[in-house]
Design a protein around this nucleic acid. Structure first.
Lengths: 130, 130
DNA sequence: TTCTATGCAAAATATTTGCACAATT
DNA sequence: AATTGTGCAAATATTTTGCATAGAA
């Protein structure tokens, strides 16, 4: 059986993710963490992010821009993705648990969960661009 | 200005995608198409899939399993992803256009669209696995 | 001491792209 | 003839992994 041992790198990764309200990619987080731990490797960041996801302590977001993003908030909520700047942000929209049941009625299998991504242009880009 | 020229490879890619009910990855589609065009290259498949997405003739699905999937059905609909076998299938669930408005009320930017992925275990895996 | 975690580099995946040549208009 | 598309291979981008060593229990 495999036990979990403490590592300050893992603590730092989780602390850093909790402190940010954007939803950084592994590489963006790696850049942040190097300020405190200049020798940390990208592999370690990936390994710990995956571990934290498995432990249910953080969440992985796949919003379609190529790289996965990470979110320290594991409570059910939805995300907004700006098609102009790529920024990923939280939506203040109450979780619609009932749509799992709705989906279940039309499904042959077992529906456990769902994700929703909203796409559009963020306030900042609306003002500055086009 | 760039004009679009006919190519039988592109026709074959679109025809092949329309004929399938699963939602293949670029590589899976490449394997299918090689039966008819053994010399087609994976790069050509990617180039044409991206082109067809830009033209709005097909849709790209990013369901979180690493590779993008493609869907010839561009009408608004949702997808189910089996966490056991990875199969991606269409949901028979009427599109909830109203949730864009709902999201808009809580957003600082402009909300244009949304995607929903349901996750769980498909009927086939429920019967065979664990 | 006994595992687990790390750093590093190489490998594995997925996707894009430069270029010479082929196909379309 | 002019321009776009293709095949091939190399390049990118993202993520994973093998291995020797460092760190935790």
């Amino acid at each position: 059986m495999k036990t979990l041992k403490y590592s300050r790198q893992r603590e730092s990764i989780k602390a850093c993710l909790m402190a940010r309200h954007d939803h950084p990619t592994a590489d963006a987080l790696y850049t942040s963490i190097r300020e405190e731990y200049p020798n940390i490797s990208l592999g370690t960041v990936y390994r710990n992010l995956n571990l934290l996801v498995e432990l249910g302590e953080i969440q992985k977001l796949t919003c379609g821009d190529g790289a996965d993003h990470f979110d320290a908030d594991t409570s059910p909520h939805y995300h907004f993705v700006c098609k102009s700047c790529g920024q990923v942000s939280d939506m203040r929209l109450s979780p619609m648990e009932e749509i799992n049941q709705l989906a279940q009625e039309h499904a042959e299998g077992q529906v456990d969960s769902h994700t929703i991504y909203f796409y559009g242009t963020c306030g900042h880009c609306l003002r500055n661009n086009s």
